[in-house]
Deep mutational scan, measured.
Amino acid sequence: QEEEKEIKRLAKKFNASEEEARRAWKKAGGDPETAEKILKKKG
């Protein structure tokens, strides 16, 4: 599933848990760029 792959990639890229990545993904409405910004800010 595309979403799961994206979440795993985000978690790995930002050294975050999949739970954090999933939360960022949901907050971003499934937009990878926005999710990255959220995780970057958090990191």
Results as ranks from 00 to 15, higher is better:
14 F>W: 15
16 A>K: 09
1 Q>L: 14
1 Q>K: 14
36 E>P: 01
12 K>R: 11
34 T>E: 13
20 E>L: 07
6 E>P: 03
30 G>Y: 04
13 K>F: 04
22 R>H: 04
28 A>N: 02
18 E>F: 15
9 R>L: 08
13 K>V: 07
14 F>Q: 02
22 R>T: 07
22 R>K: 06
2 E>D: 11
15 N>H: 13
12 K>L: 14
18 E>C: 06
30 G>R: 06
1 Q>S: 13
18 E>Y: 15
7 I>P: 01
28 A>K: 00
3 E>G: 08
29 G>W: 05
6 E>F: 12
5 K>P: 08
36 E>H: 03
20 E>S: 09
33 E>N: 10
7 I>H: 02
28 A>L: 01
21 A>V: 09
15 N>C: 08
31 D>R: 06
10 L>E: 00
14 F>I: 03
37 K>F: 07
33 E>V: 13
43 G>T: 08
41 K>D: 15
32 P>Q: 11
12 K>V: 10
23 R>M: 14
23 R>A: 15
42 K>W: 15
27 K>A: 15
35 A>C: 08
19 E>G: 05
38 I>M: 08
22 R>Q: 06
30 G>F: 05
6 E>M: 12
39 L>K: 00
24 A>C: 03
25 W>E: 01
41 K>P: 07
4 E>D: 13
33 E>A: 12
25 W>Y: 09
6 E>A: 13
28 A>C: 04
25 W>Q: 02
18 E>P: 08
20 E>H: 05
11 A>P: 00
22 R>E: 05
40 K>L: 15
13 K>Y: 06
19 E>T: 06
4 E>Q: 10
40 K>A: 14
29 G>V: 05
15 N>R: 10
8 K>S: 11
41 K>H: 14
9 R>A: 10
4 E>Y: 08
31 D>Q: 06
27 K>R: 09
3 E>L: 09
17 S>N: 06
26 K>D: 12
24 A>H: 01
35 A>P: 00
9 R>G: 04
14 F>T: 04
16 A>E: 06
12 K>M: 13
30 G>P: 01
32 P>D: 03
16 A>N: 03
42 K>N: 15
2 E>P: 08
17 S>M: 03
37 K>I: 06
24 A>V: 06
42 K>V: 15
12 K>N: 10
37 K>V: 04
26 K>A: 13
7 I>E: 01
33 E>F: 11
27 K>P: 01
35 A>S: 03
4 E>C: 10
36 E>C: 07
18 E>S: 04
28 A>Y: 01
5 K>V: 12
34 T>D: 07
38 I>S: 03
23 R>S: 13
6 E>Y: 13
18 E>W: 09
34 T>N: 09
27 K>Q: 15
20 E>W: 05
12 K>Y: 09
29 G>P: 01
6 E>C: 04
35 A>L: 03
32 P>L: 15
17 S>G: 04
23 R>K: 13
13 K>Q: 09
43 G>K: 12
22 R>Y: 08
11 A>D: 00
34 T>R: 13
23 R>G: 10
40 K>F: 14
2 E>C: 10
20 E>F: 04
14 F>R: 01
43 G>L: 13
5 K>Y: 13
43 G>Y: 15
23 R>Q: 14
10 L>Y: 02
14 F>E: 03
12 K>T: 09
42 K>C: 07
31 D>T: 03
24 A>L: 02
32 P>H: 07
40 K>V: 11
26 K>H: 12
10 L>V: 02
17 S>W: 02
42 K>S: 15
5 K>A: 13
33 E>R: 12
3 E>H: 11
8 K>A: 12
42 K>E: 15
